[in-house]
Design a protein around this nucleic acid. Sequence first.
DNA 1: ACGAAAAAGTTGACCCGTCAACCTTTCCGT
DNA 2: ACGGAAAGGTTGACGGGTCAACTTTTTCGT
Lengths: 158, 158
Amino acid sequence: MDTSLASRTGQLGRPLEQRVSYRLARLHVKLNAQATRILRRHGGLSLVQWRVLVMLNAFTETTAGQVARMTRFDKALISRTVKSLIQAGLVKARSDDSDQRQQLLSMTASGARVFDAAAPHMYARQDALLDSMDTTQREVMFDALDRLEEVADRADAF
Amino acid sequence: MDTSLASRTGQLGRPLEQRVSYRLARLHVKLNAQATRILRRHGGLSLVQWRVLVMLNAFTETTAGQVARMTRFDKALISRTVKSLIQAGLVKARSDDSDQRQQLLSMTASGARVFDAAAPHMYARQDALLDSMDTTQREVMFDALDRLEEVADRADAF
DNA sequence: ACGAAAAAGTTGACCCGTCAACCTTTCCGT
DNA sequence: ACGGAAAGGTTGACGGGTCAACTTTTTCGT
C-alpha cells in the first residue's frame, strides 16, 4: 500500500491543523461533547434544553420565537426542545392574550432546580475556557472569530 | 409580557457574544453551511464526502481506517461516507492482500473530476478565511484554539 | 373592509457526528 | 498451537442542527 504524499497532482495542501474550518470543527465537537457530559452528570439535560433554560432563566416569561431570535438557533429546533421541556415539566406555557400565535414560556420550579444543579458546573467550565488565555489573547481571538464569521457570511462568494 | 432581565435570581450572565462555546458553535455552523453551499453548487458532494476525497487526493491508495485516524473523524461516519462514494462511482476499493480486514481505497477518474470541480472554490474559501487576518492574529488565534481544546479535553473537570 | 404577505410555531426529512454493538481478521501472550 | 484481546470496518440508534412545507394568526397595503 502506497500512502506516499505524491499521488495525482494533489497533495494534502495545507496541513489539517492549519485549516481553520477543520480546527473549529474539532473544537466545536469537543466542546459540545464536554458540555453534554457535564449536563448528563448533573441533571440529565440535553445541550439544547440547557440553552433554552439559560434564556428562560433570564426572563420571567418569553416566547419560543424570542429564544430562537436571541440565540440565533433554528426555530424548528427550539420548538422541539421547548416541547420536550414542557413534557418533562421543566417549562410551562400559557397563552398570550395579545397574540394567539404565541405562548408565553416560563421555567417551573422543577426546571429551576434542574437548571440550578447544572449551572455551577457549566459556568465553571465556561470560566475555565475564558481563563485559559489572558485578556489580550481573548480579544484577539474574538476579533478573529468576527472576521471568520464575516467571511462565512459571504453567501455566494466562492 | 415581561422580558426584562430581572427575573429570578438569574440574569443572562455573560452576554452570548462573549461565550466562547456559543461563538464557536455559531461559527462552526456557518462555516459548514457555507462549505455545503459551495459543494452543492460545484458538483454536489456532501461535506464529509469532500473531506474523504481530500484525503484520497493525497494518497494513491489508503484505507478507511487511515482516513479516520488522520482526520480524527469517527470511523462509523467514514465507513458510511466511503460506502456512498463507492456507490456513486467516485471511489473504488480493492482488497488488501496483506490484511483481509481492510480494503484499499482510491479515487476513480469520476471522483477526480468531481473533486477538481469543487477544489478551486473550496480552496479559495479557505484562503479567504486565512487572509481575513494577518499572520500574527492567526497565530494568536490558533494558540487560543489549542488552549480551548486543552480545556475541552479535561474529561471530568467540571 | 379585504386579501395578500408576513409571522409564530409545528412537523417531516435529511445531514453531521457520536456511541454502542457486532462480525471477521489479525495480533500477541502463554 | 491456542485462545483472548485488539483492530478494521459495518450497522443501528440517537442528538444537534437545517431546510422545507404547513396551519393559524397577525400585519399591512389598498
